[in-house]
Lab assay of single mutants.
Amino acid sequence: MGFKLLSKLLVYLTASIMAIASPLAFSVDSSGEYPTVSEIPVGEVRLYQIADGVWSHIATQSFDGAVYPSNGLIVRDGDELLLIDTAWGAKNTAALLAEIEKQIGLPVTRAVSTHFHDDRVGGVDVLRAAGVATYASPSTRRLAEVEGNEIPTHSLEGLSSSGDAVRFGPVELFYPGAAHSTDNLIVYVPSASVLYGGCAIYELSRTSAGNVADADLAEWPTSIERIQQHYPEAQFVIPGHGLPGGLDLLKHTTNVVKAHTNRSVVE
């Protein structure tokens, strides 16, 4: 069995187990497998329904001669939608809004960016022009300005110390501490036991640490421990890039980060 097929099978099995364990909360999309990078042309966006009122959005972007996937989250909030992270750029984010209108038909009224990198804030200006209120932590807003990236308009308070959590509509926002970046936030959907790890969490097929220019490698494993301790009931975990899975993604990420750190020390 090929690795790609095995990865998709694991996603399907995880979703099936969740649907059985929580039949009222989960209505997993039966329309197909989780979209992969090879299936999404740059400039297009796919939506994948995880649970009743919960979707991931998947886009792709060219970077350094390669094409990478990027995940975000959409959560229903009454007759409105909360968006977590842009679709990595203005063109993708405009396509995301169009796809949401086509498939869901509810307005996106608020959006949260989970850290300051372009795959999370690139497209904020498109959201703002569409009347979406954009939010991020003060740290993310400051770092985005320093980096020359787009800056969300509103500040999220109460997320300055490791372990801080605040309720934001249908989700809980959690600051686990520094990891992929010093400002990275985690998003949890309690009604569906869905954990969105953003770039602080890796997919299972990833074996290298990737972009760690703004990471705190020493603190990252401790931050992941905080996530595990705060959300032990999480059933569906979405990484910032690639295929979702279960809580095993947290341990896998820790292993990859520690291996990278150990290699760096040896070198």
Rank of each mutant, 00 (worst) to 15 (best):
P69S: 15
V121M: 04
P23C: 13
R120P: 01
R110T: 10
A234W: 01
V187W: 01
L47T: 08
T60C: 06
S38L: 11
R206P: 05
A94W: 11
Y12C: 12
V121Y: 04
P41Q: 12
S137K: 05
V112C: 06
G131N: 12
D183G: 03
A136Y: 01
E150T: 04
S162T: 11
E203W: 01
R128D: 11
T254K: 13
L82I: 11
A59I: 11
I100D: 02
H252N: 08
A215I: 04
P107E: 10
L9H: 11
Y68H: 10
T86R: 02
G158K: 08
A51W: 08
A59Y: 05
Y12G: 10
I58S: 07
G242Q: 01
L195R: 00
T93M: 02
Q61Y: 08
T207P: 09
I224F: 05
P35N: 06
P138Y: 10
H180A: 00
S113H: 13
V126Y: 11
S161F: 13
S70V: 04
L185E: 01
L6C: 15
S191G: 12
A129D: 13
V67P: 15
G65D: 14
R263H: 12
G148F: 05
V171D: 00
S139T: 13
S155G: 11
F116I: 04
V11F: 10
L106K: 12
A21G: 13
D64N: 13
E147P: 04
E150G: 05
T114H: 02
I100L: 07
N149I: 07
S137C: 02
F3C: 07
S162A: 15
P107G: 08
H57K: 00
G43W: 05
I224D: 01
I50Y: 04
H180Q: 06
L97Q: 01
A259F: 08
D248A: 11
D119P: 01
R206Q: 15
D125R: 08
H57A: 02
S31D: 10
K251M: 13
I50D: 01
P221H: 06
T222N: 13
N92M: 03
Q103W: 11
V256T: 06
G210Y: 05
G158P: 06
L97G: 01
C199E: 00
V194T: 06
N71W: 00
S62V: 06
G198C: 06
L127P: 05
F116Y: 09
G89N: 05
L159C: 03
S16K: 08
V257K: 01
T222L: 13
A209N: 12
L143W: 06
A234M: 06
H57T: 05
D248W: 06
W220K: 01
A130R: 14
L81P: 02
S137M: 12
Y202E: 04
I40Y: 06
R76S: 12
V112L: 10
A111P: 04
N255K: 13
T93W: 00
A130T: 10
L156I: 10
A51E: 09
T114D: 02
E39C: 07
V112R: 04
A25D: 14
S70I: 03
G2D: 14
A178F: 06
E80N: 09
A136H: 04
V166L: 12
V257C: 04
N211T: 09
A87L: 03
I20S: 09
V54Q: 02
K8Y: 15
S208K: 10
N211L: 09
T93E: 00
A213V: 13
N211A: 13
G246R: 09
S38V: 08
S155R: 10
T222G: 12
G65K: 10
M1A: 02
D118G: 08
Q103C: 10
R128A: 13
G32V: 11
H115V: 00
D85A: 01
D214T: 06
A178S: 10
L96K: 00
K251S: 12
T222D: 13
G2H: 15
P244Q: 03
Q49A: 11
Y34I: 09
V256L: 10
H115R: 03
Y202F: 13
G131H: 08
V121H: 04
L173H: 09
G242C: 06
D77S: 08
T140D: 03
G53Q: 11
V37P: 15
L10A: 12
P35K: 07
N255D: 12
G169A: 06
H252T: 02
A87C: 00
V266L: 14
R46Y: 10
V75M: 05
S139Y: 11
V189R: 00
W55M: 01
L243W: 08
A133S: 11
K4E: 08
M18A: 14
T254R: 12
L249G: 01
K91E: 15
S22W: 15
F174P: 02
L13W: 11
E101W: 09
V146M: 14
F168G: 01
A144Q: 01
L13H: 14
L195Q: 00
S139H: 12
P221T: 11
V187H: 02
Y68L: 12
S22I: 10
Y175Q: 00
H230C: 03
E147N: 15
Y48D: 07
D79V: 10
R128Q: 13
S208M: 12
I84G: 02
P176L: 04
I238L: 07
I58K: 04
Y196I: 02
L185G: 02
K258C: 07
D125Y: 09
L83T: 02
G242E: 05
A178I: 06
G177V: 03
F236T: 10
V45D: 05
N255P: 05
V132T: 07
I50G: 02
A21Y: 14
T109S: 13
T254A: 11
L204H: 12
R110F: 04
G131V: 05
G198E: 03
I238A: 00
Y231A: 00
G197I: 02
A215D: 06
G43S: 07
T140W: 03
A144T: 07
P41H: 12
M1Y: 03
E101S: 13
G148D: 06
S7W: 12
V265A: 12
L83C: 03
Y202N: 07
G122T: 07
T93L: 00
G72E: 01
H154T: 09
Y34H: 09
S181T: 15
S161K: 14
H180Y: 07
L13R: 12
A200P: 01
G122C: 07
G177R: 02
A218N: 13
A165W: 14
V37F: 15
G242L: 03
A133M: 15
